[in-house]
Amino acid sequence: MTTLQPPAAAEPRPAPPPAGRDRRSWTGWGFIGPFVAVFALVFLAPIAYSLYLSLFRDQLIGGTTFVGLDNYEQALRDDRFWAALGRVSLFLCVQVPVMLGIALLVALALDSGRLYGRNFFRVSIFLPYAVPAVVATLMWSFMYGTRFGLVGDLGDAFGLSLPDPLSPDLVLASIGNIVTWEFVGYNMLIFYSALRVVPHSLYEAAEIDGAGQIRVVTAIKLPAIRGALVIATIFSIIGSFQLFNEPSVMQKLAPNAITTDYTPNYYTYSLSFSGQQHNYSATVAIVMGLITMVIAYVVQLRGMRKGA
Protein backbone atom coordinates (compact mmCIF):
# COMPACT_ATOMS: atom_id res chain seq x y z
CA MET A 1 0.00 0.00 0.00
CA THR A 2 1.17 3.50 -0.69
CA THR A 3 1.01 5.89 2.18
CA LEU A 4 2.09 9.44 2.59
CA GLN A 5 5.79 9.61 3.23
CA PRO A 6 6.86 11.54 6.29
CA PRO A 7 8.48 14.84 5.43
CA ALA A 8 12.03 14.36 4.30
CA ALA A 9 14.75 14.95 6.82
CA ALA A 10 16.24 17.64 4.68
CA GLU A 11 13.32 19.94 5.32
CA PRO A 12 14.14 22.53 7.93
CA ARG A 13 12.53 21.76 11.27
CA PRO A 14 10.36 24.45 12.79
CA ALA A 15 12.01 26.16 15.73
CA PRO A 16 11.07 24.66 19.11
CA PRO A 17 8.57 26.66 21.12
CA PRO A 18 10.44 29.26 23.10
CA ALA A 19 9.14 28.57 26.63
CA GLY A 20 9.86 24.81 26.70
CA ARG A 21 7.66 21.77 26.85
CA ASP A 22 4.78 22.90 29.07
CA ARG A 23 3.58 25.21 26.34
CA ARG A 24 2.02 22.20 24.60
CA SER A 25 -1.22 22.99 22.81
CA TRP A 26 -4.32 21.24 24.19
CA THR A 27 -6.62 22.47 21.42
CA GLY A 28 -6.62 19.07 19.72
CA TRP A 29 -7.72 17.34 22.87
CA GLY A 30 -10.55 19.84 23.17
CA PHE A 31 -11.86 18.62 19.85
CA ILE A 32 -11.65 14.91 20.53
CA GLY A 33 -12.41 15.26 24.24
CA PRO A 34 -16.16 14.60 24.01
CA PHE A 35 -15.53 11.54 21.87
CA VAL A 36 -12.83 10.20 24.16
CA ALA A 37 -15.03 10.69 27.20
CA VAL A 38 -17.94 8.78 25.69
CA PHE A 39 -15.63 6.16 24.20
CA ALA A 40 -13.99 5.58 27.57
CA LEU A 41 -17.30 5.41 29.36
CA VAL A 42 -19.22 3.07 27.07
CA PHE A 43 -16.39 1.08 25.52
CA LEU A 44 -13.21 0.97 27.56
CA ALA A 45 -14.81 0.99 31.01
CA PRO A 46 -17.04 -2.08 30.41
CA ILE A 47 -14.07 -3.98 28.98
CA ALA A 48 -11.90 -3.03 31.92
CA TYR A 49 -14.71 -3.95 34.27
CA SER A 50 -15.18 -7.33 32.57
CA LEU A 51 -11.48 -8.00 32.98
CA TYR A 52 -11.77 -7.10 36.64
CA LEU A 53 -14.83 -9.30 37.08
CA SER A 54 -13.14 -12.24 35.42
CA LEU A 55 -10.61 -12.43 38.26
CA PHE A 56 -13.25 -13.18 40.90
CA ARG A 57 -15.74 -15.89 41.66
CA ASP A 58 -19.09 -15.29 43.32
CA GLN A 59 -20.78 -18.27 44.92
CA LEU A 60 -24.23 -18.66 46.43
CA ILE A 61 -22.47 -20.15 49.43
CA GLY A 62 -19.27 -18.37 50.35
CA GLY A 63 -19.64 -15.06 48.53
CA THR A 64 -17.06 -13.38 46.34
CA THR A 65 -13.43 -14.44 46.34
CA PHE A 66 -10.41 -13.46 44.27
CA VAL A 67 -9.38 -16.42 42.14
CA GLY A 68 -6.74 -14.97 39.83
CA LEU A 69 -6.79 -16.70 36.46
CA ASP A 70 -8.80 -19.73 37.59
CA ASN A 71 -11.79 -18.68 35.51
CA TYR A 72 -9.63 -18.58 32.39
CA GLU A 73 -8.27 -22.01 33.14
CA GLN A 74 -11.82 -23.26 33.56
CA ALA A 75 -12.91 -21.66 30.27
CA LEU A 76 -10.07 -23.30 28.37
CA ARG A 77 -11.15 -26.69 29.71
CA ASP A 78 -14.89 -26.03 29.28
CA ASP A 79 -16.37 -28.54 26.83
CA ARG A 80 -19.60 -26.57 26.56
CA PHE A 81 -17.71 -23.46 25.46
CA TRP A 82 -15.61 -25.30 22.89
CA ALA A 83 -18.64 -27.13 21.53
CA ALA A 84 -20.38 -23.79 21.08
CA LEU A 85 -17.32 -22.36 19.37
CA GLY A 86 -17.16 -25.41 17.10
CA ARG A 87 -20.79 -24.89 16.18
CA VAL A 88 -20.34 -21.25 15.17
CA SER A 89 -17.15 -22.15 13.31
CA LEU A 90 -19.05 -24.71 11.26
CA PHE A 91 -21.70 -22.08 10.70
CA LEU A 92 -19.00 -19.65 9.58
CA CYS A 93 -17.45 -22.11 7.12
CA VAL A 94 -20.73 -22.96 5.43
CA GLN A 95 -23.06 -20.00 5.79
CA VAL A 96 -20.64 -17.14 5.13
CA PRO A 97 -19.40 -18.39 1.72
CA VAL A 98 -22.97 -19.11 0.65
CA MET A 99 -24.22 -15.71 1.76
CA LEU A 100 -21.30 -13.76 0.27
CA GLY A 101 -21.49 -15.81 -2.95
CA ILE A 102 -25.14 -14.97 -3.43
CA ALA A 103 -24.55 -11.33 -2.52
CA LEU A 104 -21.70 -11.13 -5.04
CA LEU A 105 -23.73 -12.73 -7.83
CA VAL A 106 -26.62 -10.34 -7.23
CA ALA A 107 -24.29 -7.34 -7.11
CA LEU A 108 -22.64 -8.39 -10.38
CA ALA A 109 -26.02 -8.95 -12.00
CA LEU A 110 -27.23 -5.52 -10.92
CA ASP A 111 -24.00 -3.93 -12.06
CA SER A 112 -24.05 -5.64 -15.46
CA GLY A 113 -26.82 -3.28 -16.52
CA ARG A 114 -28.65 -6.11 -18.25
CA LEU A 115 -31.37 -6.38 -15.65
CA TYR A 116 -34.77 -4.82 -16.03
CA GLY A 117 -36.14 -3.12 -12.92
CA ARG A 118 -32.72 -2.76 -11.37
CA ASN A 119 -33.82 -0.38 -8.64
CA PHE A 120 -36.70 -2.59 -7.69
CA PHE A 121 -34.40 -5.60 -7.32
CA ARG A 122 -31.87 -3.64 -5.37
CA VAL A 123 -34.43 -2.41 -2.86
CA SER A 124 -36.32 -5.67 -2.53
CA ILE A 125 -33.16 -7.67 -1.91
CA PHE A 126 -32.01 -5.13 0.64
CA LEU A 127 -35.37 -5.00 2.39
CA PRO A 128 -34.90 -8.03 4.71
CA TYR A 129 -32.00 -6.17 6.32
CA ALA A 130 -34.50 -3.57 7.49
CA VAL A 131 -36.53 -6.24 9.32
CA PRO A 132 -35.38 -6.55 12.94
CA ALA A 133 -33.59 -9.86 13.51
CA VAL A 134 -36.04 -10.92 16.21
CA VAL A 135 -39.03 -10.35 13.94
CA ALA A 136 -37.32 -12.13 11.06
CA THR A 137 -36.54 -15.11 13.26
CA LEU A 138 -40.09 -15.34 14.59
CA MET A 139 -41.46 -15.13 11.07
CA TRP A 140 -39.18 -17.87 9.78
CA SER A 141 -39.81 -20.03 12.82
CA PHE A 142 -43.53 -20.00 12.09
CA MET A 143 -42.83 -21.01 8.51
CA TYR A 144 -40.58 -23.83 9.75
CA GLY A 145 -43.44 -25.38 11.76
CA THR A 146 -44.12 -28.92 10.56
CA ARG A 147 -47.65 -28.98 11.93
CA PHE A 148 -49.15 -25.61 11.18
CA GLY A 149 -46.35 -23.75 9.39
CA LEU A 150 -45.41 -23.46 5.74
CA VAL A 151 -43.37 -26.65 5.91
CA GLY A 152 -46.41 -28.48 7.28
CA ASP A 153 -48.69 -27.01 4.60
CA LEU A 154 -46.28 -27.97 1.83
CA GLY A 155 -46.05 -31.47 3.24
CA ASP A 156 -49.85 -31.72 3.32
CA ALA A 157 -50.26 -30.30 -0.17
CA PHE A 158 -47.87 -32.74 -1.79
CA GLY A 159 -48.43 -35.63 0.57
CA LEU A 160 -44.81 -35.61 1.63
CA SER A 161 -43.35 -35.90 5.04
CA LEU A 162 -40.75 -33.16 5.04
CA PRO A 163 -37.91 -33.21 7.56
CA ASP A 164 -38.40 -30.96 10.56
CA PRO A 165 -36.26 -27.81 10.15
CA LEU A 166 -36.31 -27.36 13.92
CA SER A 167 -34.88 -30.80 14.71
CA PRO A 168 -31.41 -30.90 16.30
CA ASP A 169 -29.79 -32.05 13.04
CA LEU A 170 -31.22 -29.33 10.88
CA VAL A 171 -31.65 -26.37 13.17
CA LEU A 172 -28.20 -24.91 12.48
CA ALA A 173 -28.93 -24.96 8.75
CA SER A 174 -32.30 -23.34 9.45
CA ILE A 175 -30.59 -20.56 11.38
CA GLY A 176 -28.12 -20.21 8.50
CA ASN A 177 -31.01 -19.77 6.13
CA ILE A 178 -32.48 -16.98 8.24
CA VAL A 179 -29.16 -15.19 8.56
CA THR A 180 -28.53 -15.50 4.83
CA TRP A 181 -31.96 -14.07 4.10
CA GLU A 182 -31.29 -11.17 6.43
CA PHE A 183 -27.81 -10.22 5.29
CA VAL A 184 -27.53 -10.97 1.56
CA GLY A 185 -28.94 -7.53 0.81
CA TYR A 186 -26.58 -5.77 3.16
CA ASN A 187 -23.51 -7.44 1.67
CA MET A 188 -24.87 -6.97 -1.84
CA LEU A 189 -25.01 -3.25 -1.19
CA ILE A 190 -21.37 -3.16 -0.06
CA PHE A 191 -20.26 -5.02 -3.21
CA TYR A 192 -22.52 -3.04 -5.49
CA SER A 193 -21.28 0.32 -4.27
CA ALA A 194 -17.70 -0.89 -4.65
CA LEU A 195 -18.49 -1.93 -8.23
CA ARG A 196 -20.03 1.45 -9.04
CA VAL A 197 -16.76 3.27 -8.50
CA VAL A 198 -14.77 1.18 -11.00
CA PRO A 199 -13.80 3.64 -13.78
CA HIS A 200 -15.73 3.04 -17.00
CA SER A 201 -12.63 3.54 -19.09
CA LEU A 202 -11.43 0.12 -17.89
CA TYR A 203 -14.53 -1.56 -19.35
CA GLU A 204 -14.09 0.31 -22.62
CA ALA A 205 -10.47 -0.76 -22.80
CA ALA A 206 -11.48 -4.36 -22.13
CA GLU A 207 -14.07 -4.20 -24.87
CA ILE A 208 -11.50 -2.90 -27.32
CA ASP A 209 -9.21 -5.76 -26.34
CA GLY A 210 -12.05 -8.14 -27.08
CA ALA A 211 -12.64 -9.39 -23.52
CA GLY A 212 -15.96 -11.14 -22.78
CA GLN A 213 -18.17 -10.49 -19.77
CA ILE A 214 -16.68 -13.34 -17.76
CA ARG A 215 -13.19 -12.04 -18.38
CA VAL A 216 -14.29 -8.54 -17.35
CA VAL A 217 -15.61 -9.95 -14.09
CA THR A 218 -12.52 -11.96 -13.25
CA ALA A 219 -9.91 -9.49 -14.48
CA ILE A 220 -11.44 -6.13 -13.58
CA LYS A 221 -14.43 -6.29 -11.26
CA LEU A 222 -13.30 -8.86 -8.70
CA PRO A 223 -9.81 -7.40 -8.20
CA ALA A 224 -11.35 -3.95 -7.95
CA ILE A 225 -13.66 -4.89 -5.09
CA ARG A 226 -11.19 -7.03 -3.16
CA GLY A 227 -11.20 -4.54 -0.31
CA ALA A 228 -14.96 -4.70 -0.04
CA LEU A 229 -14.86 -8.50 -0.10
CA VAL A 230 -12.38 -8.57 2.77
CA ILE A 231 -14.43 -6.12 4.82
CA ALA A 232 -17.65 -8.07 4.23
CA THR A 233 -15.87 -11.30 5.20
CA ILE A 234 -14.59 -9.79 8.42
CA PHE A 235 -18.04 -8.45 9.32
CA SER A 236 -19.49 -11.87 8.63
CA ILE A 237 -16.90 -13.64 10.75
CA ILE A 238 -17.65 -11.34 13.67
CA GLY A 239 -21.37 -11.78 13.08
CA SER A 240 -21.10 -15.57 13.05
CA PHE A 241 -19.08 -15.67 16.24
CA GLN A 242 -21.57 -13.37 17.89
CA LEU A 243 -24.63 -15.32 16.79
CA PHE A 244 -27.25 -14.70 19.46
CA ASN A 245 -30.62 -13.31 18.37
CA GLU A 246 -31.66 -16.19 16.15
CA PRO A 247 -30.86 -19.03 18.54
CA SER A 248 -32.23 -17.18 21.57
CA VAL A 249 -35.58 -16.54 19.87
CA MET A 250 -35.80 -20.04 18.40
CA GLN A 251 -34.89 -21.64 21.71
CA LYS A 252 -38.44 -20.99 22.91
CA LEU A 253 -39.80 -22.97 19.97
CA ALA A 254 -37.21 -25.71 19.80
CA PRO A 255 -35.91 -25.96 23.37
CA ASN A 256 -34.54 -29.46 22.89
CA ALA A 257 -32.66 -28.66 19.70
CA ILE A 258 -31.12 -25.38 20.84
CA THR A 259 -29.35 -25.80 24.14
CA THR A 260 -28.59 -22.92 26.50
CA ASP A 261 -24.96 -23.16 25.39
CA TYR A 262 -25.73 -23.25 21.68
CA THR A 263 -23.44 -20.38 20.70
CA PRO A 264 -20.70 -18.71 22.75
CA ASN A 265 -22.76 -15.56 23.21
CA TYR A 266 -25.87 -17.45 24.20
CA TYR A 267 -23.75 -19.42 26.64
CA THR A 268 -22.48 -16.25 28.31
CA TYR A 269 -26.04 -14.97 28.49
CA SER A 270 -27.26 -18.18 30.17
CA LEU A 271 -24.34 -18.22 32.57
CA SER A 272 -25.08 -14.71 33.62
CA PHE A 273 -28.85 -14.64 33.78
CA SER A 274 -29.84 -18.20 34.67
CA GLY A 275 -26.77 -19.25 36.58
CA GLN A 276 -25.77 -16.00 38.32
CA GLN A 277 -22.22 -16.78 37.20
CA HIS A 278 -21.39 -13.24 36.15
CA ASN A 279 -17.67 -13.66 36.68
CA TYR A 280 -17.30 -16.78 34.62
CA SER A 281 -19.59 -15.28 32.01
CA ALA A 282 -17.30 -12.26 31.71
CA THR A 283 -14.34 -14.62 31.32
CA VAL A 284 -15.97 -16.57 28.50
CA ALA A 285 -16.92 -13.30 26.78
CA ILE A 286 -13.32 -12.07 26.98
CA VAL A 287 -11.89 -15.33 25.65
CA MET A 288 -14.40 -15.29 22.82
CA GLY A 289 -13.61 -11.65 22.05
CA LEU A 290 -9.90 -12.47 21.83
CA ILE A 291 -10.51 -15.42 19.50
CA THR A 292 -12.72 -13.29 17.26
CA MET A 293 -10.11 -10.53 17.15
CA VAL A 294 -7.32 -12.89 16.23
CA ILE A 295 -9.28 -14.57 13.44
CA ALA A 296 -10.57 -11.29 12.03
CA TYR A 297 -7.06 -9.86 12.10
CA VAL A 298 -5.57 -12.87 10.33
CA VAL A 299 -8.21 -12.63 7.61
CA GLN A 300 -7.54 -8.95 7.21
CA LEU A 301 -3.79 -9.43 6.97
CA ARG A 302 -4.12 -12.17 4.38
CA GLY A 303 -6.74 -10.34 2.35
CA MET A 304 -4.82 -7.12 2.27
CA ARG A 305 -1.44 -8.69 1.52
CA LYS A 306 -2.68 -10.32 -1.64
CA GLY A 307 -4.34 -7.08 -2.60
CA ALA A 308 -1.17 -5.04 -2.41
Binding site: P132, N265, Y269
Partner: peptide, 16 residues
Protein backbone atom coordinates in the same frame (compact mmCIF):
# COMPACT_ATOMS: atom_id res chain seq x y z
CA UNK B 1 -24.02 -7.67 10.78
CA UNK B 2 -25.82 -8.60 14.01
CA UNK B 3 -25.67 -5.15 15.43
CA UNK B 4 -28.47 -6.06 17.80
CA UNK B 5 -26.58 -8.87 19.39
CA UNK B 6 -23.59 -6.68 20.01
CA UNK B 7 -25.70 -4.01 21.55
CA UNK B 8 -27.51 -6.55 23.66
CA UNK B 9 -24.29 -8.08 24.87
CA UNK B 10 -22.94 -4.70 25.79
CA UNK B 11 -26.16 -4.02 27.65
CA UNK B 12 -25.85 -7.29 29.49
CA UNK B 13 -22.29 -6.44 30.38
CA UNK B 14 -23.39 -3.16 31.84
CA UNK B 15 -26.21 -4.72 33.83
CA UNK B 16 -23.86 -7.36 35.20
Amino acid sequence: MHKHSRRLLRGIGLVC
